Amino acid sequence: MQVAVADAAVVDAYGDVVGAQVAALDRDSLQASSAGAVPFDAEDLAAWAVAMFDENLRRPDLARLMGWIRLEQRRTGLLFDSLDLQPKLAAVAAAQAAGRVRAGDPADLLALVVAMASAWSPTSGAYAATADEPAADHDRRRTMLRESVQRAVTPQDEPTTTTAAPYCANPYNAP
């Protein structure tokens, strides 16, 4: 997503070129292209997460731009003022009432699923995948994502408790 910035005064007003690009974009269009690109299904949050993973591979520019907006423009709260999560929250609540999605605050469940779907996005703190990587890598990630989200949102018959693993200074080189 390239937006030409011809006037240095515009860049100065926003602090950098990316800020000027965001200002030049219609935020509603950005929101629609990011949130509307993946059909939401509260009955299958795992498939929704995988679709978001695929969208991040297809449009890494949007993921990076939304990450920048989060870091520089909207550090807390909703990413966009006009973002209406009510239909999604209501759908999750309905799936919860029907016993198909675990109990919990629907907004927290959505945040968790979005975060999981973004694990390999351009804004990942661990590893940013690209569409140029082998298909087998993406298939492995999709499978892990689908299974992990499914486990996270599936209702449990009995409450479970987890025991935290011992602290490891470098979790990537844990014994």
Rank of each mutant, 00 (worst) to 15 (best):
Met1Arg: 01
Val3Lys: 11
Ala4Gly: 06
Val5Cys: 08
Ala6Ser: 12
Asp7Phe: 13
Ala8Pro: 01
Val17Ser: 02
Gln21Ser: 14
Val22Asn: 02
Val22Leu: 15
Ala23Thr: 08
Ala24Val: 09
Ala24Asp: 03
Asp28Tyr: 04
Gln31Ala: 13
Gln31Pro: 00
Ala32Asn: 09
Ala35Ser: 10
Gly36Gln: 14
Ala37Asn: 11
Ala37Asp: 11
Val38Ala: 04
Asp41Leu: 12
Asp41Ser: 14
Asp41Gln: 01
Asp41Phe: 02
Asp41Gly: 12
Ala42Trp: 01
Ala42Leu: 07
Ala42Ile: 04
Ala42Arg: 00
Glu43His: 12
Asp44Thr: 08
Leu45Tyr: 00
Ala46Ile: 08
Ala47Gly: 14
Trp48Ala: 08
Trp48Ile: 11
Ala51Ser: 07
Met52Thr: 05
Asp54Trp: 06
Glu55Pro: 00
Glu55Gly: 00
Asn56Phe: 03
Leu57Asn: 10
Leu57Tyr: 05
Leu62Gly: 07
Leu62Ser: 03
Met66Tyr: 07
Trp68Ser: 03
Trp68Phe: 09
Trp68Asp: 01
Ile69Met: 14
Leu71Gly: 09
Glu72Met: 12
Gln73Asp: 07
Gln73Cys: 07
Arg75Glu: 14
Thr76Arg: 11
Thr76Ala: 10
Asp81Glu: 14
Ser82Ala: 15
Leu83Val: 03
Asp84Arg: 06
Asp84Met: 09
Leu85Gln: 13
Leu85His: 07
Gln86Gly: 10
Gln86Leu: 11
Pro87Asn: 12
Pro87His: 08
Leu89Tyr: 01
Leu89Gly: 00
Leu89Met: 07
Ala93Pro: 12
Ala93His: 04
Ala94Ser: 06
Ala95Phe: 08
Ala95Ile: 02
Gln96Trp: 05
Gln96Leu: 02
Ala97Asp: 13
Ala97Leu: 05
Ala98Thr: 03
Ala98Tyr: 01
Ala98His: 00
Gly99Gln: 04
Val101Tyr: 08
Arg102Tyr: 00
Asp105Pro: 05
Pro106Gly: 04
Pro106Met: 08
Ala107Leu: 13
Ala107Ile: 02
Asp108Leu: 11
Leu109Val: 15
Leu109Asp: 00
Leu110Met: 13
Ala111Thr: 02
Val114Gln: 03
Val114Met: 10
Met116Ala: 13
Ser118His: 12
Ala119Asn: 05
Ala119Cys: 02
Trp120Gly: 00
Ser121Asp: 05
Ser121Lys: 02
Pro122Cys: 00
Thr123His: 05
Ser124Thr: 07
Tyr127Glu: 09
Tyr127Lys: 10
Ala128Asn: 03
Ala129Ser: 15
Ala129Asp: 11
Asp132His: 10
Glu133Ile: 05
Pro134Val: 06
Pro134Gly: 06
Ala135Arg: 09
Ala135Thr: 11
Ala135Leu: 10
Ala136His: 00
Ala136Phe: 05
Asp137Leu: 13
Asp139Ala: 15
Asp139Gly: 14
Arg141Gly: 07
Met144Val: 03
Met144Ile: 07
Met144Glu: 12
Leu145Gln: 03
Leu145Thr: 12
Arg146Ala: 13
Arg146Leu: 02
Glu147Ala: 13
Ala152Asn: 04
Ala152Met: 04
Val153Lys: 00
Pro155Arg: 12
Gln156Tyr: 06
Gln156Glu: 13
Thr160Phe: 12
Thr160Leu: 14
Thr160Asp: 06
Thr161Tyr: 09
Thr161Arg: 06
Thr161Asn: 08
Ala164Ser: 15
Ala164Trp: 08
Ala164His: 15
Ala165Ser: 10
Ala165Leu: 14
Ala165Pro: 02
Asn170Phe: 00
Tyr172Thr: 05
Asn173Met: 04
